[in-house]
Design a binder for these strands. Structure first.
Lengths: 280, 280
DNA sequence: TTGCTCCTCACGTCACGTGAGGTGGC
DNA sequence: TTGCTCCTCACGTCACGTGAGGTGGC
């Protein structure tokens, strides 16, 4: 059986698909849309008419911002169901992006309308060592919020299942690299003391017993969701710098009221703790 | 008067703003966020507490996808009104993008659900030379739709003002570079013959009299808005390739029913004309 | 003194766009 | 034969991220 394919030059294929010649050459180079034939003498590319449909799909997926690597996976999907799943996953990402853009718009308005939080609310506090159940991981800052919710859920579930009583609000210890590199170690903990100050929690899944060290902190309470927590960080950093009380060490957060407590983000309260020395 | 500025290291400023150290150095390099002081010996950067507010604005504008160059312009705005105008312009662009993404989703669904247009509807046609009023420009393909509406509006307004009667539907002549480079010459014309075949139109604004040359075309009608006109182009190109009747020359479009005629996009009709020879 | 912070290159990423300089096809 | 199409480098764009390799500050 001989398959006779009707061919067209790259110029005709460009007019037919509304993809530029440069783009078509690029798609050839990365193996996304390989011409049916390439003249070995001249390097001239020949595209088959049956490639028009593929090009139309590629164009629409690119219009949706899908990376070339993922488009290649869609084209290679073993079944229509797999293909639809990949596309649906990308559309879900687009929806997430849209929501985060809408939040960014509100944040910007907030920033331009409302004054910076007042640093009169900064409090200096020495926290003692506590025994706790803890989850530790190295994460990307971008994944922070989702990861935090998962860790808190696992901590509360584990502590409850073991019939222990939390001895204070949950907290987090953030390595500097989380801020300076957007990638670093985070520990989320839930205080629950046992005999002689060591945690009574038994390891389950990611949850381990841990001793959370004592610290001296400049503390300020952030009101609302984490999206604009940087404003509270700024005020706190400014306070610490003006009083020249900064010391090295990881930043802490304490989750007083959050998603688990009330669905109203305005009522959420998070304490930010910046390492500081309290005595002069 | 001596201004004493409280300073912080790049590391502290990173923690305070949640911008990475690499990002802060980049913003310094491009002049977007210049430290208040740089140690001439060591190159160490010092940031002032009053720069925290600026950094917070920058971060939110970046979250909205605003380019660094535009953010610089926002920061340098002479008045709050100018600033708000620049931000509003960017938000309008975001809204446009959102709409175009939503259209892309529908287009993709269409492509996966509906079969390609049938090439039984392709018609071979010889069009004679006509006298016309015309607007010619070199444009980017991305600006095509908006530019086309403007040109059509100007053509119809001019012809009507000069009490001339259109002698047929408006059309467009698209240089190959519009498709192969996404940048090239386009002529939009409205036939209106005068004495002895030359256009009676007097030049006004961008509108000039022109003789639109005769052509032999393979023609197919596109139904609906221009967003998925590439499907009709593909079917037409396939037809021309299979019958081996393609000849060089610019592509034409004829705007039979459009935005000017009905607000319902499903009723819009555009003829696509692909250069072809009619005799064998 | 040690370890940590900070520094400057130099190069990579992603999806192309922009020339330069040259050759094949009708 | 002319002019057009097509070719391959090589480099640019944008907003950073990723090491390498080295120095200053507490």
């Amino acid at each position: 059986m001989v398959l006779v394919t009707t061919c067209m030059s790259i110029g005709d294929f460009s007019r037919a698909t509304h993809l530029t010649v440069k783009t078509l050459r690029h798609y050839h180079e990365v193996g996304l849309l390989t011409p049916v034939a390439v003249d070995p003498q001249t390097g001239y590319r020949r595209y088959g008419t049956e490639q028009l449909a593929t090009a139309q799909v590629v164009r629409r997926l690119r219009d949706l911002g899908m990376p070339l690597e993922e488009i290649r996976a869609v084209l290679a999907a073993p079944s229509p169901e797999a293909r639809n799943g990949q596309i649906a996953a990308h559309l879900a990402r687009l929806t997430d992006q849209l929501e985060s853009t809408q939040r960014a718009v509100e944040q910007l308005r907030d920033l331009l309308v409302h004054a910076a939080p007042d640093d009169a609310a900064v409090e200096l506090r020495a926290v003692p060592q506590v025994a706790a159940a803890a989850v530790t991981d190295v994460i990307d800052a971008a994944d922070g919020t989702g990861w935090l919710q998962g860790a808190l859920g696992e901590l509360y579930a584990t502590v409850t299942a073991q019939r222990l009583t939390p001895a204070g609000p949950a907290g987090g210890i953030y390595a500097d690299e989380i801020f300076t590199d957007h990638h670093g170690q985070v520990t989320i903990f839930l205080p629950c003391g046992g005999v002689s100050g060591s945690s009574a929690v038994r390891p389950v899944g990611r949850v381990l017993p841990a001793a959370i060290p004592a610290a001296e902190l400049a503390v300020m309470t952030h009101h609302g969701p984490a999206t604009d927590v940087d404003r509270t960080y700024g005020t706190l950093a400014s306070y610490v710098a003006r009083h020249a009380i900064g010391v090295p060490g990881p930043i802490r957060e304490y989750y007083l009221i959050g998603q688990r407590d009330t669905p109203d983000p305005d009522q959420w309260r998070t304490e930010i703790g910046w390492p500081a020395f309290l005595t002069r």
